[in-house]
């Protein structure tokens, strides 16, 4: 988004932009990439979100939760599986099917006897978390905690670019950098406890797209951006209408102002 960058650059020049808080320490800034949803007119690439969801489920979800997302979100306006025939996403058969593919205890539900209730998911359920709690999550990851991904792209500067860069940023550690047990080196993060995830052909995309590393990095970044900001498309559309309205009104008021003040010295 050109405008964003301009303003961000301006603010940075003024020093008003808060110190970059991407990763601890100062590693490479994320590589800038052009996105379908960039700019005031950009909209999400729906098929990219769909593919991204597939990557999340097949790869990321084994370690990362997305607590703020419910299955119904997938079928809501602007979501990857939105379907005009089902304005209420809870009725969307595809969404119902995706939710029902998980059978487990949901949100600590118990039955009348106090035993865990096991049932297939419904669209109102939130994405299932991979670990019971933080201790177990850390225990399975050399002490590191895989963060929740619900608002990840907003919790990092230039989040969409950042996620894509991070997925592709694994390198050999430069000299002098000590890696701890189970750590890898990532140019955009430094020593990181997440192993490289993407390799060419890792998954088979449902839509037949070739699953290169780059393709997957891009798709997961779009998916996470949508997850963090699901109303982006409608936000921009509304914004354009609001601006158009304000612009016309401003012109009218300006003309009234000129007319009222026309014969007044001031």
């Amino acid at each position: 988004m050109k405008m964003t960058r301009l303003i961000a650059a301006g603010l940075a020049a003024l020093g008003l932009s808060a110190a970059a808080g991407a990763a601890p320490g100062d590693y490479k800034a994320p590589e800038h990439h052009h996105w379908h949803h960039s700019g005031p007119f950009g909209t999400y690439d729906r098929s990219a979100i769909q593919r991204g969801y597939q990557i999340y489920v097949e790869v990321c979800a084994s370690c990362h939760s997305m607590d703020l997302l419910s299955f119904r979100n997938l079928g809501e306006r602007g979501g990857p599986f939105e379907d005009e025939r089902f304005p209420n996403a809870n009725d969307n058969p595809l969404v119902m099917q995706l939710a029902a593919s998980y059978t487990r205890q949901w949100a600590g539900e118990v039955d009348d006897a106090g035993d865990p209730r096991i049932r297939p998911g419904i669209p109102a359920d939130t994405f299932p978390a991979p670990y019971e709690n933080e201790q177990i999550a850390r225990g399975s990851n050399n002490g590191a905690l895989p963060p929740d991904l619900s608002v990840m792209t907003r919790a990092r500067h230039h989040g969409t670019d950042y996620v894509r860069s991070l997925m592709l940023g694994y390198k050999d550690a430069p000299e002098g950098v000590e890696l701890g047990a189970g750590q890898y080196y990532n140019e955009y993060f430094g020593p990181i406890s997440m192993a490289p995830q993407l390799v060419d052909g890792l998954i088979e995309y449902a839509d037949g797209t070739e699953a290169t590393k780059e393709q997957m990095a891009e798709d997961i970044a779009v998916f996470l951006t949508w997850a963090a900001d699901p109303h982006q498309d409608i936000r921009k559309q509304t914004g354009l209408m609001v601006l158009l309205f304000l612009f016309v009104l401003t012109i009218l008021v300006y003309l009234a102002y000129r007319q009222i003040w026309a014969n007044v010295e001031h």
Binding site: G21, L243, L246
Partner: peptide, 25 residues
């Protein structure tokens, strides 16, 4: 109205640029 137009640009197109990323954690 002029001020509101600038405001609207931020509300609708740059809703988080004035904030800090860490507050999404």
């Amino acid at each position: 109205l002029v001020y509101l137009m600038v405001f609207a640009v931020f509300v609708f197109f740059l809703p988080t640029v004035l904030g800090h990323a860490d507050n999404f954690i």
